[in-house]
């Protein structure tokens, strides 16, 4: 089946089984390896992408569901000012260890700050509660989010 959608700002079309996981389409058909498979059950958030600006777990999205929608992956975020702020903040806060979960946390951070530019600690914990990390104990990821909120202040309000 032909399915058209917008991927990282560009119109794309795939001819594929609509039941295929968006995760597989992004990785295998488009080579977007920043989208990771950590579980395939919607538990870990390593495959998080944005659909129409909202965070979702791409392992649970049949590609038939994205017809006509806008899909954004970490690769599509990479050149934005917002991403750069998150990148620098994660570096400085020590938010990264093994890194497998990191792009997912970047997506969750972006989605949170776009909606809530000045989140409290509880808001942050809730916003990243669908992303598992086994290395950091989360504390330094939360520091990274806080730092990004502070540093990007004006950016998030647009």
């Amino acid at each position: 089946m032909k399915i058209e959608f917008i991927l990282n700002g560009k119109k794309v079309e795939v001819n594929t089984d609509p039941a295929r996981r968006l995760l597989d389409v992004l990785r295998e058909d488009f080579g977007l390896i920043g989208v990771k498979e950590g579980c395939g059950e919607g538990e870990c958030g390593a495959c998080a992408v944005l659909i129409d600006g909202k965070i979702v777990h791409s392992c649970l999205v049949p590609v038939g569901n994205v017809k006509g929608k806008e899909v954004t992956t970490i690769e599509g975020l990479k050149d934005t000012e917002e991403y750069k702020v998150i990148h620098e903040s994660f570096l400085d806060a020590g938010s990264v260890q093994c890194g497998f979960c990191t792009p997912g946390f970047v997506m969750a951070t972006y989605a949170l700050l776009k909606e809530n530019p000045q989140p409290h600690e509880d808001d942050i914990r809730k916003a990243i509660s669908g992303n598992l990390c086994r290395c950091t104990g989360y504390s330094m990821i939360i520091d990274g989010v806080k730092l990004a909120a502070k540093r990007g202040e004006k950016l998030w309000k647009d």
Partner: peptide
């Protein structure tokens, strides 16, 4: 299939394969 969050897990088979639904999927979420 609306969101698919339950069905994609229930009919999951193996890494990188589409789930195996018991009948043809009708996508209604949009």
């Amino acid at each position: 299939i609306a969101g698919g969050t339950d069905l994609m897990v229930r009919y999951k088979r193996w890494k990188n394969l589409p789930p195996s639904f018991p009948s043809l999927p009708l996508f209604i979420g949009h």
